[in-house]
Structure formats: C-alpha cells, structure tokens
Amino acid sequence: MQPTSTVADPQAPLAPDSRTFARAFADVRDAWRNRALWGHLGWQDIKQRYRRSVIGPLWITISMGTTAVAMGLLYSQLFGQDISTFLPYMTAGFLIWNFMVGCITEGTDVFIANEGLIKHLPAPITVHVLRLVWRQMLFFVHNLVVYVIVAGIFFGTLSEPYHMQGDPNLHPGISWTILLAIPGFFLLAVNAVWVALLFGIISTRFRDIPPVIHSFINLVFFMTPIVWHTGILSKLGEGSGDWRVLIAELNPLYHFLEIVRAPLLGHAQDWHHWVVVGAFTVVGWALALVALRNYRARVSYWV
C-alpha cells in the first residue's frame, strides 16, 4: 500500500468553503479572542529590542522627545511661529505621525517578518497584525510622556483661547474636549488593523510593495500638516482662491491626524475630519475583508 501524503500542495486549489466571508470574519474574531497571545508577543517585542539596555524602553521617549523638540524649535523659527503654540502642535503631530507610519511601514512586512510563527503556530493570521498594532500602541503611550511635558510647560497659553500665527481660526484652548482624543485614537487603531492586514497580504505576494511604500512615506510627511499648519495655506491663498488648502484636504493622513491632535491641543474641532475617517474605516475594512477572504489561506505559502 502506498503511503498517503499529508503535505499540502501550494498550487492545489483551495477548498470551496475556505474562501468565504464567514472564514474571514472568523479569522478576525478568533484573533481577538487570542489577545493574551498577541498581547504577550507585543510586550516581548519591546523587551527584546531593548534587551541589556540600562534604561530600556525609555530610549523610545528620549528619541521621540529629542526629535520633536529639535524640529519644533527649527521650524518655529523658519515659519516665524510662536514657540508656545507651535512646539505643542509639532510634538502632538509628530507623536501621532509616528504611530500611523509605524503601522503602515511595519504592516507591509507583518507576515514576512513572522514567517516562522505563521508556518509553525496554528493561529489566525490576524493575530500577527494585532500584535503589530498593540506594539505601536505601547510605543505611542511611551511617547505620550513627551507631549504631556511640553503641554505642561505651555499650559498657560494652551488653556486660553489663542491664535496660531497665520491661522485665522481662534482656538478655544484645552478643556474637557481633550477627552475626544480617546475615541479618536481608538478609531485610529481600528484603521491601523485593516491597513496592516491589507498591505501585509498584498506585500507578501508582491515583494516590491514595501520598498515603494517606505520611499513614498517620506514625501507624504512633508505634505502632511505636521511641521506646518493649514492656516499658512489659507493665508497664501488670499486673493487667488483657497485651492492650496486641497494639499491638506486630499491627504487622508491629515484627517486621521486631526481627530486626535485637535482635542489634544484644544483646537476648534472640525467634524468633517470624523466623516472622512469614518468613510475610510468602512471602505478600508471592506477591502481588507475581501483580501482576507480570498488570500488568507495563501499567506503561509507566500511567506
């Protein structure tokens, strides 16, 4: 009698019921139920990165603080901005940007980097995405210390109604509306999951995607209102229309940035940012679920 092989053929067609939305939803649901697993792995990632370091994860905060303060001081002088309002603006923006970019760039490699676990650990592939987002959230909490220090130093200015130079809008100042940053960040994390899931699946199949995104993201940084604010564009557009404002408005990352940054700084909340982010959340998760439905079983063969 000939022995029966149990090794799956990567070129063999998938079982008919393996490409269903029920399986895709089950993958996400089961990954969430395994939060003890990806939560532990996320902690271990940080501990491993700073193994044998004297101050450990505090290097995250020191690096973030040094960069934010240096860039804030530089660009405040270049743009003629008041340091008491611009430095908190720059710090908050840079903090949120690091979280978003970390999820995007590492998301492209999320399955490739976890090749060993994917092939030997029987777990939903979404586990690796949640591990990535959880790790970036821990980095964000570490870096949040820098914002608290900067905001504390300039709290007198930020707690009263104020203008940013070149910005016609009067901002009401920090108040109870700072709590809106919590649902804003939660929505940011929800979107980070589908971004890493979708880009991770595509990049696993097409290995040219990660370097393209890594290169493109540097350009997007300077086109996103982080080291400058939209009030400058409005001022430049006086007398010739406000078409320059579209530079920011057509950038999706600007809207994700604002739903967290505006409450943190006590800026006037513009609800159209929430509408845009909500639309991207629905469309993005729909695309991610389609990719998960069709290619979830192929990821282990592609890595």
Rank of each mutant, 00 (worst) to 15 (best):
L287A: 15
K47V: 13
F280I: 08
A26C: 04
P122I: 07
T4Y: 09
A92L: 02
S175V: 06
R207A: 10
G231W: 02
L73A: 15
G39I: 08
W59R: 10
M223H: 04
V290T: 14
D242L: 10
D27Q: 13
A279T: 12
M164A: 03
V110Q: 00
A262D: 08
L179A: 13
D109Y: 06
T177W: 04
I209Q: 00
W97R: 08
G241W: 02
R298W: 02
Y295N: 03
Q136G: 12
V133D: 03
N251C: 09
R131A: 11
V190R: 08
A26H: 01
D9R: 00
F140Q: 04
V110I: 09
I83R: 10
A113W: 04
V282M: 00
L138E: 10
S18V: 14
L219F: 13
V212A: 13
A189C: 11
V133M: 04
D82I: 09
V299F: 02
P263L: 01
V276D: 02
S300N: 03
F86K: 05
F186V: 15
A268R: 07
D109C: 08
H214C: 08
Y301Q: 07
T85R: 03
G102P: 02
T108G: 09
H229A: 06
Q48N: 15
F139V: 14
D208Q: 05
H128Q: 11
W285P: 05
L73F: 10
R298Y: 04
I125R: 07
E115D: 07
N169R: 09
A262G: 06
V260A: 04
P88I: 10
R135C: 12
R207N: 15
F185L: 08
H229L: 07
V110W: 00
H163L: 12
H267N: 01
R207M: 05
W194T: 07
P13V: 13
R51K: 13
H163S: 10
V220L: 08
F111H: 05
N143L: 11
R33I: 09
R298K: 15
A181S: 15
M71T: 13
H272W: 09
M100I: 14
P10C: 09
L264A: 14
A262N: 11
Y162F: 14
P263S: 08
Q136M: 14
G152I: 10
T126E: 02
L292R: 04
E258T: 10
Q11P: 02
W274M: 12
L74N: 05
G156R: 11
R135H: 12
L188D: 05
I83S: 05
A15I: 11
V299R: 01
P210I: 01
Q11I: 07
P13M: 13
R298M: 08
S159I: 08
I149N: 07
L292P: 03
V303R: 04
W302N: 12
T108D: 03
G166C: 04
N114T: 12
I62E: 08
W243D: 10
D109E: 06
G200D: 00
A22Q: 07
Y89I: 10
H229I: 03
G42P: 00
V245N: 01
L170T: 15
K119C: 03
V195E: 02
V145W: 00
V275N: 05
F94A: 09
G231Q: 04
D82H: 06
I209P: 00
V148G: 09
D208A: 10
L257M: 06
Q136R: 15
V227A: 12
R244W: 01
F21E: 11
W59L: 09
P210C: 05
F94H: 09
G93Y: 00
G152F: 12
